[in-house]
Computed example of a mutant assay.
Amino acid sequence: MVKGRAFGVGVGPGDPELMTLKAVRLIRENEVIAFPGKVPEETTAYKIAVQAVLELKRKELLPVYMPMVTDRDMIEESHRKGAAVIEKILDQGRNVVFLTLGDSTIYCTFTYLQAILEEDGYETELVSGITSFCAAAARLNIPLAEWNEPVHIMPAMHRLETDLDQPGNYVLMKSGSHMSEVKAVLARSGRQVMMVENCGMTGEKIYRSVEEIPDDAGYFSLIIAKEDGPAL
């Protein structure tokens, strides 16, 4: 029997209207839709996608639970278990469409599963989606970069020792739980700072200075720190 293929599909940052036509088509054409969580209907990816594709309610929803822990052995074990869950479906000759927030190539859980699946001889495909930082820049109605400006994308800012002193603009992701420390770095940088919390989702909030950003900002908080003055 021909084995199925695993698709890692980005559903965008939160607004269902930002889902790609390809993401919608793959959900409609395949019966098994996987999600990174114990209960698919409770995942953010499901809540986004179901608004654009009502047929998702009638699909076979596959939970792939991978807890957010720091222990490397536990992380690798959860990835192996997750891949095994998907492989059972692929061995039946059916495809699996794994839905993920934003874009499937930016800090995406599926890519860890992808490496295991390919190592085990299965075919995979990544399907791009709109990234959170591009959506946030558009929501702020600003360009993310102009002319020859570089863009630095950094996760978990609280783990980095940096003063944001490189030329260009910075995108800071996954820093919500240590926002007070992040704000101190931002204040020292002298940059123009803006943040979107829950971009495209219920409870979206926009902040246009370091002083406005609350210390208790949520997990889906994305910061853009720009150099003062226009790019030349």
Rank of each mutant, 00 (worst) to 15 (best):
I130G: 05
I130E: 01
I130L: 13
T131C: 08
S132W: 05
S132P: 02
F133Y: 14
A135P: 02
A135L: 01
A135G: 11
A136S: 14
A137L: 06
A138Q: 06
A138N: 12
A138I: 04
R139I: 09
R139D: 05
R139K: 15
I142T: 08
I142S: 00
I142E: 09
P143V: 06
P143I: 02
L144Q: 05
L144G: 03
A145N: 13
A145Y: 09
E146S: 13
E146N: 11
N148G: 12
N148D: 15
P150M: 03
P150T: 11
P150G: 03
V151H: 01
H152G: 08
H152K: 06
I153T: 12
I153E: 01
I153D: 02
M154S: 05
M154I: 15
M154Y: 04
P155W: 04
P155H: 11
A156G: 00
M157P: 05
H158F: 04
R159S: 08
R159W: 10
E161N: 13
D163P: 00
D163Y: 12
D165F: 01
Q166F: 07
Q166C: 01
G168F: 03
N169H: 15
N169Q: 10
Y170Q: 08
V171F: 02
V171E: 06
L172M: 11
L172Q: 11
L172N: 09
M173F: 01
M173I: 02
M173S: 00
K174N: 10
S175F: 02
S175T: 14
S175Q: 11
S175A: 13
G176N: 02
G176W: 00
S177M: 09
S177T: 13
H178G: 02
H178I: 00
M179G: 07
M179H: 02
M179T: 11
M179F: 00
E181V: 01
V182W: 04
A184Q: 14
V185P: 00
L186D: 04
L186N: 06
A187W: 08
R188D: 05
R188W: 11
S189K: 03
S189H: 06
R191G: 08
R191S: 03
R191L: 15
Q192Y: 09
Q192N: 11
Q192V: 12
